[in-house]
Design a protein around this nucleic acid. Sequence first.
RNA 1: GGCGCGGUAGCUCAGGUGGUUAGAGCGUUGGAUUCAUAACCCAAAGGUCGGGGGUUCAACUCCCCCCCGCGCUACCA
Length: 700
Amino acid sequence: MKAFKRHTVTAALPYANGPKHIGHLAGAYIPADVYVRYLRSLEKDVIFVCGSDEHGTAIPNQAVKENTTPRAIIDKYHVQMRDCFKALGIAFDVYHRTSEPIHHKTSQEIFLTLFNKGLLTEEVSEQYYDADAKAFLADRYIVGTCPKCGHPNAYGDQCEKCGSSLSPRDLINPRSTLTGNVPVLRETKHWYLPLENYEGWLREWILKGHATDWKTNVFGQCKSWIDAGLQPRAMTRDLDWGIKVPLPNAEGKVLYVWFDAPIGYVSATRAFFEEVSSGKLEFAQPQRDFGTVKADDWKKYWQDEETKLVHFIGKDNIVFHCIIFPIMLHAHGEFIVPDNVPANEFMNLEGDKMSTSRGWSIEMHEYLEDFPGKPDVLRYCLLANLPETKDSEFTWKDFQSRNNNELVAILGNFVNRALVLTQKYFDNKVPAKGTLQPADIAALESLKGQPARIAQALELYKFREATAALMDLARLGNKYLADTEPWKLHKTDPDRVATILHVALQIVANLAIAAEPFLPFSAARINEMLNLQSRLWKDAGSDSLLAEGHALGVSGLLFEKIEDSVIEKQLEKLHAKKKLMNPVVAELTPLKSEITFDDFAKLDIRVGKVLSAEKMEKSNKLLKLLVDTGVDKRTVLSGIALHYTAEEMVGKQVTLIANLAPRKMMGIESQGMILMAEDADGKLRLLQPNEVVMPGAVVS
RNA sequence: GGCGCGGUAGCUCAGGUGGUUAGAGCGUUGGAUUCAUAACCCAAAGGUCGGGGGUUCAACUCCCCCCCGCGCUACCA
């Protein structure tokens, strides 16, 4: 393994359009924090950067929803996220934001470098433009009828009903959501990064260079993308919210949010060194002594081959952090690329996907409000169950059981036992170590080896294993006490008891060191109770952290039990929130603009009968139907395979648009369109006459 | 459909360049114990390692096919 001089660790910039939930914590922030705290304990030269991602079309979108300005949105959520992270002990050296001038400057510089090196291509294409709003319309601002499922309110980038990804040009009857106008096509110029030019480099770097040290899910995902063939990707957008494209004749154009967001790591680092070197801290909060620094020192962390760059992200970000951003950095020429991207999978909640918008989530601020003083409990539960190799599951019952059976019963209990016994027998002072017996020697031996076990797991990004190894240290303590039974000896052999408690207390002191990366608040409390300064990792495993006669502090309970009622309340709250967010009447689509009778009369809608049906090969949505329309028998393709089987369609009456222009799909021509009604849950239902009518019956 | 990742004890998950009795925690059962937030400690029960083929002296571990879950992707006129 390559030896590195310093580390740059990033955690995915959270998007400032809403609160973030515990799934985000499990995906990136908690493991990143544990990793960095461990490196700091090793006295490594490390910087931990993060910040709010504040550009992109969804921010103005959210502003419209909340009836306010984009600026107000990002200010609100930036502060909320920053404060929640801090309250959870996630100790960034800098928590920046992409709306800051230094970030705009950095992003523009990088864009210009790529441009000046001739690495960007210019392309003119036709995009929708709203004449009244005098603005090109971002994909999200255009709605229209989905060409695939007929949903009348599909967005320009995606139809939320059928899930297909679209481009605005695909929409039928497009409308601007800004004004309701019909947008017109207008030519616009954009700058593209030809990703395909870097395929060879990516193959070399990832497929050859990181075949063994990257997680299988990350590596597989990258391979899949590379093998599928990369394409030019637009790095600019027509939008007024974002970073201006630093070129002449580029009014109204901003950098693509996914171009500027990862650069946020760089600008955050840059801001950090500017602030620390000038002594004016705004976003920087150095978590260790960086010594004397210069504003320019950010370059060491981004441009020196001896720096190990690690991105902590969730699996949804893999392509950006492993393909696009590295290509940007590599193409620029002066930057290093990540040594590892230990992306996690997703954490589900009580059997279902976590989703803020659907109300099925535990937001960071909700947890902090409901469980004050318990950040470590959440950290522990998430760590013990991180989605490292596959999606995992958070349940409140598991939360309770981890707290009660592990934090309270094993860790808290051991610390408490050792301290209480010392208070009882030795006036709360560390007793003298006498002659060691085999049990003592064995315990100290295990103690000595445990930090290495934890460290080894952490170096390999196996946080769950590391967390379990930490708990094993507390188990070791409990077993030691159970085996030596000092409470039975204190009348007959006080010297022996002194030795035993001396050893037990050394284990407690070690727990403070080992637990610090995982449970920083609890580690600090243990030190408080021991009346001890916090120590570094190099001291972990030592049998002499506490001197004989050292006076201990005031002890108390590290963790408290969580009752069933608390858990039940959370479950109720969760279900109530879901109901609130998903009212029975789902978001109804607004009425379309008025049409004349003649418009309607153009449609030839009639009832037909399905004569036969079969699943389209190589498709999982399409059914191929043979429909008797009365006047003819024709083939109609319909995207209903997820809702109806071929068998159950046969013999059914259907309503179809019979004079719709034929369209080829998957090599077969469809001559008509079956009408469906979609329920709130997204399920499609056939539109049928309430009594059987003859095939060909006209609907009017 | 294609591609990627996964499918191991009741639950949450480890593991393996193929090789003696497949692991942990929780849960369950039994025992021991009382210093400790009735916690700790010991022990036991519990798995045809998704299904079916194949390679091999030997496969849970390699190969092929199939099924299931998750994600990306194509198709819903």
